[in-house]
Amino acid sequence: MAHEQSLVFLVGIFLMMAYGMYKTFIRGEIPHVRKIAALDAIDEGIGRSIEMGKKLQFVIPNDLMGPMASVTLISLTLMSYVARKAAKAGIPAVYTCATAPVLTVMQGMLRDIYAEQGKLEDFNNPEKVKVRMLGEGYWRFGAGASTALALAYPGLLQRENVGTTIFAGEDGKNLLLYGEAGREADCFQICLNPTSSKLSWAIATFDYVAMLSEVYTAGAWVTKRKEQLGSVIGTDIATWTMIVLVIVFTAVASILGRSLSGILVG
């Protein structure tokens, strides 16, 4: 029975997304997306790096396989946004990941982005663009957090003279290490964390943090395409529906002493 209930919820939320996309794509209504401070800070970070003559760094600590795949995919989407801006501004950049498959995808994406911006020579110049893998893989040794990346990170920031670092993803207990290492290197730090893991550490150590659905919304916002922005309308409807349901379920459980789902199922 629990599965059927989940299916109803899932279909319901999908329908809300479809309605949002219909509103934007067919009817041309562009939703208002409130300012996400961490996204606005990307421009600030690029400007800061240019002024200080330092580099921009984008880090993806997760892998393309396993439970963190969606996190990696959204991180790659955001990386393409940052890379376009970096290529346009001609700022030296370091793109770092933790696994070999992500490195391969990153290289291909960055080559295309720099070529599209007419900056292919920058991509081929190691002084301008560096694509790095600092990780131990993921079969036996890489269970969990990216130890090698976390260990190498403080040295990397100092060696590469990084001015702004954007951390996209989740790395459990190591998040504090990234944040504090960046603080010691006097970096402007932005964390784009789509999970609820170690959020308090991110808030305590990074300058700007985008969290959970903000990051997924950012993924739609950066494309500036109306059909993608439609999912933001769907997200809003789904969120308000959940708020109403939580209030109704809580009220019914408090008044009747039984959960509403229990009453409905009988």
Binding site: L10, I13, F14, M17, A18, M21, S70, L73, I74, L76, T77, S80, Y81, P194, T195, S196, L212, S213, E214, V215, Y216, T217, G219, A220, T223, R225, E227, Q228, S231, V232, G234, T235, A238, T239, M242
Partner: peptide, 19 residues
């Protein structure tokens, strides 16, 4: 966060999430 993931999945299922 879960709703955000479903929104991302919806974009993907509709072939709109290509970056």
């Amino acid at each position: 966060g879960g709703i955000g993931i479903i929104a991302y999945a919806a974009r993907f299922y509709m072939g709109k999430e290509r970056q």
